[in-house]
Each structure stands twice: as structure tokens, then as C-alpha cells.
């Protein structure tokens, strides 16, 4: 009984974090929520008795993807102020 409840909660949390990651106004926030989604996915894999995938998901889905995307966001933020510079360089 408790396990079914846990599964239902986990499924609900997955859907909510997924929706929140896509709907969030702030891109930084969206990616942080997406990292949370990756961690929840790792828990899901444990529930599905797939510890191998859980390990990979925790390292990749939550860790590497998050760092990669956050790095890109900070790049865009930094680039924003120099948009005109980029334009000038091209011209």
C-alpha cells in the first residue's frame, strides 16, 4: 500500500517538475527544476529495479546535463549585454 502511494507520488512529482521546467519564466530556474526532474527520474529507476540506469541517470541526467545547460544560460546572459558588439563585429 505504502509502495503504491510512493509510486503515485513519484509519478505526480515527475509530471509536475516536467511541466514546471517547461513553463518557468526564468530560464535559470527552469534548468534547476529540470535537474530536480533528473534526480526524480533516478529514484524512478530504482523503483523500476534498474540500479544501473539509476546510477547513470544520477550522474548524467542530474549532474552533467545540468552543468552543461547552466553554463549555456550564463553564456547567453553574459552575451546579452554585448549583443551590439557582436553585431558590430559582423558588420
Amino acid at each position: 500500500m505504502v509502495e503504491i502511494l510512493l509510486d503515485l507520488l513519484l509519478a505526480l512529482a515527475l509530471i509536475l517538475t516536467a511541466a514546471a521546467a517547461l513553463l518557468s519564466q526564468d530560464l535559470f530556474r527552469a534548468i534547476v527544476v529540470f535537474i530536480a526532474f533528473g534526480l526524480l527520474m533516478a529514484v524512478c529507476w530504482v523503483r523500476l529495479q534498474a540500479p544501473d540506469i539509476a546510477l547513470a541517470e544520477a550522474a548524467i541526467g542530474a549532474g552533467l546535463t545540468g552543468v552543461l545547460l547552466l553554463d549555456a544560460v550564463s553564456h547567453f546572459r553574459r552575451g546579452r549585454g554585448t549583443d551590439s558588439v557582436v553585431e558590430e563585429e559582423r558588420g
Binding site: 540506469i53 546535463t65 547567453f76
Partner: peptide, 22 residues
């Protein structure tokens, strides 16, 4: 936003994995 599209694509990937294993 392209990064958001990438997030969505990742989401689709995770969903596919869940369906496959499930």
C-alpha cells in the same frame, strides 16, 4: 527559446526510456 526546446527534447527522451522499461 532554443535551450527550452532542448529541455523539452530531453524530456521526450526520458519519457521514451520510461515507456520502454516500464
Amino acid at each position: 527559446h532554443l535551450l527550452r526546446k532542448l529541455l523539452a527534447l530531453n524530456l521526450i527522451g526520458s519519457a521514451t526510456f520510461l515507456i520502454l522499461v516500464g
